[in-house]
Design a binder for these strands. Structure first.
Lengths: 192, 192
DNA sequence: GGGTGCATGTAATGGGTTACATGATTCT
DNA sequence: AGAATCATGTAACCCATTACATGCACCC
């Protein structure tokens, strides 16, 4: 909801543009689907927080361009002044790793290799985005965009370090188990 | 849903215990509310994936103790074999920081100081949990629990480094702005 | 007496994803 | 010819949180 207002302070955009912008710039820490964007823009327009004008294009369908209104800016700054609440963490990879003793180590190894791969390409994307921001220093928002990008860089690098360390650990376990019985069958504790 | 099965491989537990265990051990990367736990246990029992027995207690209300069944273990290992999908990121702090130019820098500074504070105490908790795990090396799950805990340590330390760096940056900005006009009023780009 | 912890559950509500529907253009 | 991109929207559905409801015991 308020992301849309925030992005519209940068420049007037269509719902489609907003979706693209989200994926391309803040996608690392925030996401919204079109099934969310379009209805929310309607609500915002009904509340007078954004105004819309239709733009005709040859060939392509019409675009509804939204601009933030004075009331919209007010709503945005009010929202920005509310302390962010910590989200509920949901890391399926870690959850599955936590129960990794129930399956062959190779499964966990595969997951972490995949994760490391995807984080490496994310780092590339963020570094490129950071350079892009650095080139546009005149924007008053630029320093803030840079800080958000830095978060991604630092976090992803940390994840990669963890992935390396963890892969080494898992491979040790896999070595011991190799040619051994099924997982989850070792001596149990507290079983009754 | 499947978290419950996973935790029940450690030992039979009540819904309440499951909630406590989640908060106390995997709370850093996974959470479930009681409004989720109780109905899910019912469904699992109806599907024969867990079995329940009632335990009477003096004074306190009865406890329903759930144990995982053979079918439950099967379901769990099947689920563990499905590659985890990356979750949709939702970091409200970063989102608000991203739009930080719209408000006074002190607001962003406050948020990050709060965050750093809470991460510092999380690190304490995780380190203590890691020591606890290290003391119980005999559990076959222990190495996996340790890896999950390490993730928390590494990530939180990275967050703290970022927080330090970002606070320094923000304080520079706040210094320049001090006694200056409202935020978000500087020269705009692409305004029309 | 009142707050907190133990203990289990249901219902309302909200947030969000996915799938569906439509249609033209451009690229392979 | 078919896939991908541009472009907007709706509806079904799922998942999850919050609030509500109940009740005993223990501590301050």
């Amino acid at each position: 909801m308020e992301v849309l207002l925030g992005l519209l302070t940068i420049e007037p955009m269509s719902g489609y543009d907003l979706g693209q912008t989200i994926r391309g710039s803040i996608g690392h820490f925030w996401n919204e689907s079109y099934g969310q964007i379009y209805p929310n823009l309607k609500k915002l327009a009904a509340d007078g927080l954004v105004s819309a004008k239709t733009e005709k294009q040859k060939g392509k369908p019409e675009r509804r361009i939204y601009s933030i209104t004075r009331e919209g800016r007010e709503r945005l700054t009010n929202w920005l002044a509310v302390p962010p609440q910590a989200e509920v963490p949901r890391n399926e990879l870690l959850l599955k790793l936590f129960f990794g003793a129930q399956v062959f180590p190779d499964i966990s190894i595969g997951y972490i290799e995949r994760m490391a791969e995807s984080e490496r390409s994310s780092i590339q994307l963020i570094k490129r985005a950071a350079e892009e921001i650095a080139r546009n220093q005149q924007y008053p928002d630029a320093p803030y965009w840079k800080m958000a990008a830095r978060f991604g860089e630092i976090e992803l690098e940390a994840h990669l370090r963890w992935a390396e360390e963890t892969l080494a650990e898992l491979k040790k376990i896999a070595g011991k188990r190799r040619g051994n019985a099924e997982p989850g069958k070792e001596k149990k504790h507290a079983s009754q």
